[in-house]
Amino acid sequence: MVSFEEIEEVYKRLEGRLKPDEFKSMVEEKVIMMNGLCDSKTAAMLVASELGLNETIKIKDIAPDKGGVVFIAKVISIGDIHEFSRSDSSTGRVVNITFADDTGSIKAALWDEASDLVKIGDIKMGQSLKVKGYIKEGQRGLEVNVGRGGNIEHVDKAVAVNLEPMKINDIKSGMSGLNIIGRIIDTGKVRAFQRKDGTTGKVTNLTLGDETGKIRVTLWDSKAESADFKIGDTVEIINGYARENTFSNQIELQLGSGGNIMKSNTAVDYSETFTQIADIGINSAYSVTGHVSGLDEIREFDRPDGTKNKVSNIYVSDDTGRIRVALWGEHAELVNELDIGSEISIIDAFAKPGRNEEIELSAGARTRIQVLRK
C-alpha cells in the first residue's frame, strides 16, 4: 500500500484536480503496473505527468522536485536496447538516450514501447524531440524516465546545443556526463570477455590527449565494435564517466551504451610530458626518455594459469640517473633491436619498488615504446 504522506508533495502540485483518494489509487495502480521498477513517489510523479503537469522547461531547470517534465532537446547519443525479465515472466525493454539543449544535457531511459522508437529508426542521432517523462535520481545523477504516460514527439526546428568540453586535467574520479575533445595518441585491440551472466562483452581502449594532459578511455560493447579510429584522429566524447584505476592510481574515462564518440575537426594540441629519472616515484605511471645503458637476455616463464610469458630487462639513463626497465610480453623482444647507446622513449610505464628497494619501471600492455635511434 502507498502512504499518502509519501506522495502528498506531488499531489499538492495538482491544485485540486482530483481527490486525494483518487490520486492515491492511481499511484498504487501505477506502482503495480511498473512491477517494482519505481517507488511510490516516482509513480506519483508519473501520474502527475499524465494529468497534464507538462510545461516545457530547459534542461538546466530540471530538478528532483519537478516530477513530470517536458523539454525540447537534441539527441546526442543513443545506447543499446537492453531486454530484461520481469517477475511476472514478461520481457521488458529499455534504452538510454542523451539529450542536450543550449543549457546542458541529461540522460533519458526509454522503456518498453518507447524504446521501440529506436529499434524502428524513428529516433536518430541529431534529431530535435519533445520529451515528456518523469524525473528520477539515477546512479550518476538525474535522469528522465519515459514509459507509459510519457511521450516523444518530433519537433520541426533546430535545437542549439552548448556542451562545453572539459579539459582532461580537470577530470576527477566519480564525475559523470563528461564531454571532452582530444587527439588519439594510442589505440588498443578489441577484446572479448565473458560476463557473469554468460553473455559475451567487447572492450577496447584509446588514449586521448589535449594541451592539459592525457587520459585512458575504455569503450564497451557496441562502442568498442564500432571504434574505427587511428592515432592522430581528433574525437569528441559525449556523456562519459570517470573512475580511478586502482592498479595505476590514474583517472580513466569510461564510455558505455549511454555515451557517444565521434570524429571532430577541432584542432587539439598535445605533447608528451617526460619525467626525469631522478624524479620518478613509486605506484604511478611515467614517461621517460634517454639512452640504453644496459641489456639483459629474454627469459620465458609460466604464468599461474599455465600460459607462457616472457620478460627482458634494460637500463635507461638520462642526465639525472639510471633506472631498470622490465619489458613484458611482446616488449621483451625489443632487446634484440637495441644496442648500448640506443635512444629510446618509454611512455606510460608503471613505477614500483625493485631490487634493493630501488625504483624500477614495468613496461606492460599499456606501455608504448619508441626507438628514436638505434
Rank of each mutant, 00 (worst) to 15 (best):
H154L: 15
R93E: 11
A100L: 07
K58F: 09
G198T: 05
M262V: 15
T207H: 06
Y270S: 07
D318W: 00
F4K: 00
D318R: 00
A73T: 03
N151F: 15
V31P: 02
V2D: 01
G329R: 06
R322P: 03
G256I: 04
H154Y: 15
E164R: 14
L372F: 04
G149Q: 01
N249R: 05
V268H: 13
V144R: 09
K352G: 08
V155E: 04
S284V: 03
K202D: 07
S293K: 08
L255C: 06
A109D: 11
S312H: 08
F193D: 13
G52H: 00
D61E: 13
E83W: 03
D21W: 12
T212V: 02
T246V: 07
D170A: 13
K202V: 04
I135K: 02
L37F: 12
V161R: 05
L14T: 07
T98P: 02
G150V: 09
D302L: 15
N260S: 13
P353D: 06
E153S: 11
I81T: 04
F350Q: 05
N336D: 06
I97C: 01
M262K: 15
A100M: 07
P165G: 00
N35G: 14
R17P: 05
Q127D: 13
E6V: 13
I135H: 02
D302V: 15
A267N: 15
I181S: 07
I72L: 06
A365T: 04
L334T: 01
L208N: 08
S87H: 11
S287E: 08
I171Y: 02
N162K: 15
A158H: 14
I369H: 03
I181P: 04
S257C: 11
L51G: 04
W220D: 05
E358W: 09
A109S: 13
S287I: 04
T218E: 13
K58C: 10
L178K: 05
L338H: 03
S176T: 09
Y315R: 12
G232M: 06
N313G: 08
E358L: 10
S105L: 14
A100K: 09
V288G: 00
L219Q: 03
T218W: 06
V131A: 03
K19S: 07
G259Y: 05
R183Y: 08
